[in-house]
Amino acid sequence: MEHYAALLSFGEGGWGKSIASGVLVTVSLALATLPFGLLIGFFVALGKQSKEPSLRLAANIYTTIFRGLPELLTIFLIYFGAQIGFQKAVAILGIDARIEINSFTAGMLALGVVFSSYASEVFLSAFRAIPIGQYEGAYAVGLSNGLTMRKIILPQLVRIALPGLANLWMVLLKDTSLISVIGIADILRQTGVAARVTKEAFLFFGTACLLYLILAIISSFFINRIEDWAHQSQDRVRARV
């Protein structure tokens, strides 16, 4: 038992520090992906519920592709593909340079496009849950399209989409483990290194699983807080009635 505690400790001969840095990388990757994925997902959803057929087609192609590809393959495609693509583009400009895409950026892009294609479906069903009377009412009081979206639709949209987005956040947290294969020192990679060096694979991969569980539990705490916040305007109205 003491042997295991020493292996996981933060001191000399312990792997605590490197695993903690892995947790930091996992969390920061997920957090960095989130706003980017949400933003693209929102615009893709706008495209999907547009009256314009060509916009709908363009948005549907996006989700078909990125929901159909395995996440691991998407990561490889973007990691190697972007590298080759940039190289070709630079070669056309007549500069001969080796370009390396930062693997963190590649991972963020890959996870972001996958997240956004799922998020667009969540946003789309949230859009459909908002009655058309909300738009008509906003039009009747003379709000512009942008103001209607910002002041009337978006606050309701967030509330309706939140459970679906919370699910996607959990999926994103788990998907970050895949980017360990392109060499990012996340939880799984750090524990994997420790497992190989110490030959205590079960201990370290078990620790990795526990860490992901802990992250999930912490996330659900914050998600509950955000849901309370999103519902508070409704609660206020109900209290008054």
Binding site: M170, K174, D175, T176, S177, L178, S180, L188, G192, A195, K199, E200, A201, F202, L203, F205, G206, A208, C209, Y212, L213, A216
Partner: peptide
Amino acid sequence: VYFFRGTPLLAQTFLIYYGLGSF
């Protein structure tokens, strides 16, 4: 259910393939 839905499939696979090798 919570364990298998809350942890990445990759970590579970590692736990079984490499981890059980410890025993």
